[in-house]
């Protein structure tokens, strides 16, 4: 089950929509659940659906459709690096390569200590600030030179 605190946050989302449209809050509710649990297992998705009074399968459809929901455990810090063309022209791929080497993992892998997961991202809408990466979906880091990457990794450890 989700904590009282999480449910309160979900209530705040539900209040944004017409009274008969609680399902509209499912995306935000799944984000809140993921923040609390680290990733979304079937049971958690089911709990969110029950809380919003929608079919579990409908919530599961949402969780599997959107890229930023984690349906399997990830490292403590999930790093998503954008390698799409605009970023790649200004070092997106080089930054990703630097990270792979530094962490000793490839995309979609997690370090043995469970600290870092590396993901390849699509355009984050920040192409002018390349290289860019997202930490745990919510924190955007821009202009990620090797020095900045070193700083970030040290800070996460």
């Amino acid at each position: 089950m989700l904590s009282e605190d999480a449910l309160k946050k979900i209530d705040r989302e539900v209040a944004k929509y017409p009274a008969d449209q609680k399902q509209s809050a499912v995306m935000a509710a799944l984000v809140i659940a993921q923040d609390e649990k680290g990733w979304l297992d079937r049971e958690t998705i089911g709990d969110v659906a029950d809380y919003l009074g929608m079919a579990q399968i409908a919530a599961y459809e949402v969780a599997t459709f959107y890229n930023m929901y984690d349906l399997a455990p990830v490292g403590k810090h999930k790093l998503t690096v954008c390698t799409n063309l605009p970023c790649a022209l200004s070092g997106g791929v080089h930054a990703a390569d630097y990270l792979k080497k530094k962490l000793g993992i490839d995309f979609n892998e997690t370090t043995p200590d469970g600290m870092f997961t590396l993901k390849e991202g699509e355009c984050l809408g920040a192409c002018g600030d390349a290289p860019v990466l997202l930490v745990n979906n919510k924190r955007m880091c821009c202009f990620m030179t090797p020095e900045e990457i070193d700083k970030l990794i040290a800070e996460c450890k």
Binding site: S24, M27, A28, L52, M54, E61, Y66, M68, Y69
Partner: peptide
């Protein structure tokens, strides 16, 4: 309303579906 990683939701009718809490 926050999105959560789907380029297609920039398409206006997909975006409306998404606000309704669907794929």
């Amino acid at each position: 309303h926050q999105g959560w990683g789907a380029y297609i939701c920039g398409e206006e009718s997909a975006l409306l579906e998404s606000i309704e809490g669907k794929k």
